[in-house]
Structures are given as C-alpha cells and as structure tokens.
Design a binder for these strands. Structure first.
Lengths: 230, 230
DNA sequence: CGCGGCTTTGATGTTCATCAAGTAAAGTGG
DNA sequence: CCACTTTACTTGATGAACATCAAAGCCGCG
C-alpha cells in the first residue's frame, strides 16, 4: 500500500529510466522540487521563446514538438510518447525554448526545477551520466526520424507515419489517429490534400481501413514495403 | 615559449570551450588519454557501425556527417567546422556510430578515450555540466538547420547553403566550395542537376560569381531574400 | 438548424527529378 | 609531359511528383 499523501516519485516509472541512480532520500528531495501539470488535448505546454526554467518530461499522454516556419505554418519535428519526450534539447544551452510543445492527447507533464537538476549533475556523477545518456537517446531519435522521413517520397512518408503510430506509439494495428490530417502533413512536410489523397489510396488498395480518425492496418507487409521503398 | 615536447592540451583552443573547468593537473592527465589524427581531404574519420570508443572533436578543418540512405545514396546531415563538431550525439547512448564522418578539408581530429570522459563526468560535476551544455548546443544546431532547410524550396535551399558557407564557415563573401555539387545536393535533399542549374541561375542573375569551386557573393541582399522567402 | 472547421476529391499548374548528351577538369599510367 | 581514362560539371528536354485552388460533403457544436 502506498501512502498517496506523500511523495510518489519513488514509485514513478521514470525513476527506472532517468533517475535510477538516485537514492530514496534524494528522491524525496526531488519531490520537493517537482510539480505535475495536466493538459487536455490541444493544451499548450510551452511555446517558442518561453524562458526555460524547468526540466520537463512526459509522464503520460502524447505531445507534439513544433515551431512556426517562415510562412507562419507549423513545422512539426516530433510526436512523442512518454519516455521519448523531455523538455528537449537545449535546456542547458539556451535561455529560451526554441520549440513549442503541446498535448495531442490528455497528458501529464512532470516538471522539475532546472536548478535542482543542475545541482544533481554537479554533485552526483552517476546521475549526470545517466541523464546525459537519456538526453542523447532522445535527440538521436529525433534526428534519425527526420532523416528517415526526408528519405522518402509522399507515399513512403505516409506509410512511415502510420507504422510509427502502430509500432512505436500504440503497439496495435488498430488505433485512433491523435492528429489531424494537416498535422501529419506538417510532420512529413507535405501538403494536407496529398496526405489525404494518399490515405485514400491506401484504403482503396485495401492496405488500411479508415473511418474518420480510426485507422486499421490490414496489409502490414505492403505498408512496410511502401515505407521502405519510397 | 611553449615546450612542444610536452602536453599541449593546456594551450588548446578547445580548453576554453569544453574543458574550461578542468584544472591544469587534470589537463595533464587528459593528455595521456588523448591522441590526434590528421586526415586529408576525403579521408574517412569513422563510418556507420564502427564501435564508439572515443570522444572526438574537430581541432581544425571541415567535416561532413552523413549516412547511407535506403537507395545507397548519401544523406548529409551536417557540414561542420571546429567547435561545431564532436563525435556526435549518441556517444553514450549507442555502442556504434550511426553516422559516418569524413574530412572535406585537411582536418585534425582530437580524440579522447571515452572511458576517461566518463570518469570526468562521474567525478567532476562542473565538467559534466559544461560538457552536456556543449553537446546540447551541437545537436540543437543540427536539428535547427535541418528544419531550416526543410522549410525552403530549391532556390531557397541553395541560397541558404551559400550563406551558411559565407557567414558561418568562411566568414567571407568569397570562398572555395569545399564540397562537390553532388554533396550540396545530398545535404539539401535535391538532385545534383538542379543544384547546378540553380547556381547557374544565380550567376546569370548576377547574384554570385562562379569559377569552378570558387564562389563570390555579389548581391548579398538578394541571396538573403531568396533564402528567407523560399 | 446553421455555422465553421476538418476532410475529401478533382482539375490544373509548378516544381523538381530523371535522362541523355556533351564539356571541362582532374587523375593515371606510360 | 602527354595521351588516356575517369569523374565532375553543365544544359536541355521530358515527365513524374507534388502543391495549389476550388467546390462540395461531413461532422460537431452552439
């Protein structure tokens, strides 16, 4: 039985991933410097230009990381699930966020004062190493995914995104798209109309079933083939 | 006068950027764990799949970071000068390099056993923080540049690259392109023929002068306009 | 019920890749 | 140092891929 009136950080899943080197007593201190925030679908977590004062990570939900492009359009650079998002990149190198982040599903963000993270790094070598490794992994993933997308043509990109949702995010062949067609377009740098057209094509070729936001991948092999060839 | 038979790390420019928190005595130890390698134009520094055993950074020269795409083509994700390249990303999160790196100009790479860097992080909080900040900055730059390029059309991308060489790398309006037309194409994800065509167009419109690899930017404002509009 | 936003589809035009052929440049071996 | 070979560059012509525009359908919400 857990006493819910006390700090729950010691039972947080994240403890194993990013804070595994911290002792119980340190976790208790961590609790004092942390806060949790809930966001509903569409809620803005922070935006470009906001001052960076906290280290944030996603406890549950789904977020998009994006910035405004020259033309005022949205450029989405990542769609991330828990463990894959932290208040990314540049928390130490910059004063202000370069990217906006908003919830695309009900999300809970855990946020820790940056000063405390800083002091942990200063005084706790194992933590520093672990933390660094995590940050590395996360930025690495973003870069790799960007390259993967850039590599592909329209159909390949749409297939790639569908497989990303199926394999990485929902781990299911049937799922509800958490994003609009336009957001997919902003993510893969294509026009909305062509994303829709491609989805329709996939439906006509019976690679997927489509009902509004609900997608079911029927012919997985073919979708993979399109993704890897395109 | 510097005794060149001894460790020169204490006089290395990099000391101020990445190792400023280390004491002189620590720098001396660092020397024992470091080696320098020279590469001539075209030389391969490491390739995808090589085991990561050292932290590397560029002391002088110019390198390209790339990977093989599906189709066997080269995808260039960064062209970096000293201070902007370190044996990037993922040195802690991965066992093997995900990207190849090769010299596009005479280059000197300084390389330090990863175990030693690891021990510094473990035992030296200030160093950990500084090191992390550097890595952050570097990966950040890569992501930002990728987005910038993705944003633009053909002419905009070519203009962007020319401005990148002029402003960031050579700090001069006249310079020799260190890369082939094909490499520019691989960097901005366009075809070689169209890169050449665009350069010719710029020449015809008297925005630049072109003699083989030598580029002179004549109409800077116009080039900027093309870069920011496209 | 009606309005506004997201989605869908078709028609059209632009942008870009591809192919081909030719030229210049740069390396290679005698 | 020259002939030879190869690789890089250049340009034009063609077609494919994709964006854009416009009109209509759908759906949720006040």
């Amino acid at each position: 039985m857990i006493d819910t009136s006390k700090c729950q950080c010691s039972d947080c899943q994240f403890r194993n991933v990013t804070f595994s080197t911290l002792e119980d007593s340190e976790i208790t201190t961590l609790c004092d410097y942390h806060r949790e925030y809930s966001y509903s679908k569409g809620g803005l977590i922070h935006k470009e230009g906001d001052p960076i004062q906290e280290f944030k990570y996603l406890k549950s939900g789904l977020v998009k990381v994006y910035r405004a492009s020259n033309s005022g359009e949205e450029q989405i650079l990542a769609i991330n699930k828990p463990f894959d998002f932290v208040s990314n990149i540049s928390i130490f190198s910059e004063e202000r966020y370069k990217y906006s982040v908003s919830a695309i599903e009900e999300s809970v963000i855990c946020s820790i004062k940056l000063d405390y993270i800083r002091s942990l790094i200063l005084n706790h070598g194992n933590f520093a190493l672990e933390f660094m490794t995590r940050l590395s992994q996360i930025t690495d993933k973003i870069i790799l995914q960007t390259l993967d997308i850039r590599n592909r043509n329209l159909a390949g990109r749409v297939a790639y995104v569908l497989l990303y949702f199926a394999n990485d995010i929902y781990k299911s062949m049937i799922f509800d798209l958490p994003v609009s067609r336009k957001e997919i377009a902003d993510f893969i740098s294509m026009s909305t109309a062509n994303v829709i057209r491609t989805l329709s094509d996939f439906r006509k070729e019976e690679i997927i079933k489509l009902h509004g936001k609900t997608v079911e991948i029927v012919n997985y092999e073919k979708l993979e083939m399109i993704s890897s060839r395109g």
